[in-house]
């Protein structure tokens, strides 16, 4: 079977950052592979190692800069990558439906049996693309998967979904399916030097809207970010000052007052 993994390069803000207009200043952002997607890549590579998946393809919506992150996924064992970008995507805030339109076109070309992606992206935190994609392409789905066992012969994925409050739901999902992967599903590997070398030779196919048979109308976003600001701190904490020894001393007083360690 063929596994398609959606991989996002996410931006993380530095501890000190400035807001310019409706986004964080470019110089205050660091880019990295989305943490949740790292688990999705690992799950796909493990399926390949177990002989269940014949091919693992990653798909990313992102500018050329994202290729460094895509290479990381390739170095961890994905076979090849598709990177979708178009000037029409620059600047605006893509809504769920426009991302789904892009992935739908890639799914039509790749015809995967299983699509894996992270539960959410660390930067925008929507947590919606995978489930919406499943609806669009007519796949079954399960969100927030923290245990995965694929029975390819039966065409079923046995999953656990991590609910709130320490409860897991056990579900059988018919393939083809889209599964959104929760952190903790597995232990994502570090890329080996050999993997990193091999990744340099793996294909990253760049596609724009016309390559995918789409037009700007297909990705018109219904959402606009109108403001971005730092939330006002609601802290009324007593901040304990001083060097480590002084602050530990004051904290010890506080704890003893509360009857701790007495």
């Amino acid at each position: 079977m063929k596994v398609l993994v959606t991989v996002k390069e996410v931006a993380e803000a530095d501890d000190d950052f400035a807001i310019e207009g409706t986004d964080i200043a470019e110089s205050d952002l660091e880019y990295d592979l989305n943490e949740w997607d790292d688990y999705a890549v690992e799950a796909a590579v493990q399926l390949a190692e177990a002989g269940i998946a014949d091919e693992v393809v990653t798909v990313t919506v992102g500018p050329e800069r994202a290729e460094e992150t895509i290479r990381m996924a390739l170095a961890k064992g994905a076979d090849r990558a598709v990177r979708v970008w178009d000037d029409a995507l620059d600047g605006g805030f893509a809504d769920v439906a426009s991302k789904v339109a892009l992935f739908e076109a890639v799914v039509a070309e790749e015809e995967p049996d299983l699509v894996l992606g992270g539960v959410q992206a660390a930067d925008t935190g929507f947590g919606a693309t995978g489930v919406a994609l499943a609806e669009r392409i007519g796949f079954e789905h399960a969100a927030v998967v923290n245990h995965l066992d694929v029975d390819a012969d039966a065409g079923v994925a046995h999953v656990h979904r991590e609910l709130e409050g320490g409860v897991e739901e056990l579900t059988d999902v018919d393939l083809p399916a889209v599964l959104t992967v929760q952190t903790g599903l597995n232990e994502p590997r570090y890329a080996s030097l050999r993997g990193i070398r091999q990744a340099q030779r793996k294909e990253i196919a760049a596609k724009d809207l016309s390559d995918l048979g789409l037009t700007a109308d297909d990705i018109e976003s219904a959402l606009t970010i109108t403001e971005m600001y730092e939330p006002e701190s609601e802290s009324d904490a007593e901040m304990i000052e001083g060097d480590a020894g002084e602050s530990a001393g004051r904290l010890a007083e506080v704890l003893r007052e509360k009857g701790v360690g007495a």
Binding site: A11, E12, A13, F17, I19, T22, I24, A122, D123, T124, G125, I225, T226, E227, M228, Y229, E230, P231
Partner: peptide, 8 residues
């Protein structure tokens, strides 16, 4: 957004 660092 950005892990609760900003509101939009």
């Amino acid at each position: 957004m950005y892990g609760s660092k900003v509101e939009t």
